[in-house]
Design a binder for these strands. Sequence first.
DNA 1: CGAGTTGAGCTGGTATACCAAAAAGGGTAG
DNA 2: CTACCCTTTTTGGTATACCAGCTCAACTCG
Lengths: 215, 215
Amino acid sequence: MLAPQTEEAYRRLRRMILSLELRPGEPLVERKLEELLAVSRTPIRAAIQQLFREGLVQRTGRVYTVAPLDLAELEEAFEFRTWLETYVVRVAASRRPNARQLQELLASVEADLDPEIELEKATDFHLALAKLTGNRFVVASLAQVLQRIYRARYLEITRPQGADQALSDHLHLIELLQQGQAEAAAAFLQRHLERSREALLESLEGSILLGVRSS
Amino acid sequence: MLAPQTEEAYRRLRRMILSLELRPGEPLVERKLEELLAVSRTPIRAAIQQLFREGLVQRTGRVYTVAPLDLAELEEAFEFRTWLETYVVRVAASRRPNARQLQELLASVEADLDPEIELEKATDFHLALAKLTGNRFVVASLAQVLQRIYRARYLEITRPQGADQALSDHLHLIELLQQGQAEAAAAFLQRHLERSREALLESLEGSILLGVRSS
DNA sequence: CGAGTTGAGCTGGTATACCAAAAAGGGTAG
DNA sequence: CTACCCTTTTTGGTATACCAGCTCAACTCG
């Protein structure tokens, strides 16, 4: 979608931020990144703009820094998700997903050893559910909130059993959807998110990453 | 928030798009805009990127064009808004807004002769409502959908009585909120949006702007 | 006369030079 | 020793030069 160099810079920066290689609070100095990524400042600036818009990068004064993990933001994210996805699941269950849509859902519940890929798939699963509503704004809103809390979710999924729990939850949810059990699916999703939220908060508990302002 | 030249270019471009001065489908040629806006391509490119992310600008092949008005998108937007704002109003009514918050709401229901300002105020009103939930994702999602259908709303509000109807609706809604009548407020909002949707579709009916692909 | 080819000129993408403002560092005066 | 000021450096913002790919039109060859 973006220009090739910009896309590359964006993906590498995003990856470094999400995997916490670039720590929250760390300043993004364009001329350093120029050297690090071996591209000129132009695509780097475009990439930073993009990340800024997505909320992964913050601006404090004139300098761009990696956005800190924000506990309040996390709580708001889960409140919003719960409410959004509950709706999503109700709609999805009532409009029984067709074969192709089920395929897409199932494709995102394969186990994988790499936690980063696992997380991508979990994200895809929730977005595929949202797509079942046929409403692009639902999908866009969910995509935004998932992206925003990506780093915290990364911490959660790398815990022992972190990924397995999510996987089995997702599988069960698909079953409920197939059977058209809207209310059961909504209730189960709510529990799923509640569990996820608690595990995630626990992962963050005492994390040195919380509230770090600079490296 | 953005750099000054970029901000200026962004605002002017956005204004030209939203006011339909730049028609849907019209290509945005960087070197033409350079001349038109009297700034270099760098801030223009940044501004276009921003508009692209917001959905006001599309990419067809390698050229950026003003996004066409999309009837399906409009329907989805109203479906999403209705559902989102119904929730917003319920929450807002239950947590009776305080004086400062009411002030903010009331500030956005002053009549104005300029339809553009009127529309900004209507937008502010709905966003101020969303803020009452205290959830930044609710606000961000609503802001995005309102922005996305801004041009169609502009067409609606410039119709005779278009602005007055919205204004009196907003005033009534504030009253219901003050009285904490959550269900009545939610129901009224739903009617408000339904009216708005119909007026808007009527404005678009047969509009030459629908589906235009190039100038 | 028509189809294929070639080349000129747009266009967006990238690199880089330049600027102004802010931050950092050092030196001096009190 | 401290506080202030001045210089130097660093930084993001802007302008611009350069590049590669595509478009399209004109010309040539069959």
